[in-house]
């Protein structure tokens, strides 16, 4: 790997990413929606029950296609990640969600 150019960062690995250099940070913090709070609570429960770990969730979010990573809201990404982990573990099947 030494002689060639390093590969680009994964899409989620944002530290120093030049494409945000001129993007101002919106300092406001709008209240979370009911959906957001439900997803958050569901994730906490599933973690407590040993059905998802932080690192599995992180990997599932990192594995989202870049368009989804950029376009979905924070808790939409969490929901997608929870679904991906529960499907992979066989806790639920796709028929449950179709």
């Amino acid at each position: 790997m030494a002689q060639s150019e390093p590969p680009p960062p994964y899409h989620h690995d944002l530290g120093g990413a030049a494409r945000f250099r001129c993007t101002p940070i919106e300092p406001d913090d709008p209240p979370l929606s009911d959906f957001d709070r439900r997803v958050d609570a569901l994730r906490a429960l599933l973690r407590q029950k040993g059905l998802i770990t932080t690192d599995e969730q992180r990997l599932a979010i990192e594995s989202l296609p870049p368009e989804a990573y950029d376009g979905l809201t924070y808790y939409e990404k969490w929901l997608r990640a929870i679904v991906a982990v529960l499907l992979a573990r066989g806790v639920i099947g796709w028929e449950d969600l179709a």
């Binding site: 945000f20 250099r21 940070i25 406001d28 913090d29």
Partner: peptide, 13 residues
């Protein structure tokens, strides 16, 4: 929201 934003994550470092 700002802490989670991509701009904050990219620029703060």
């Amino acid at each position: 929201a700002w802490y989670k934003s991509q701009a904050y994550r990219a620029r703060a470092v």
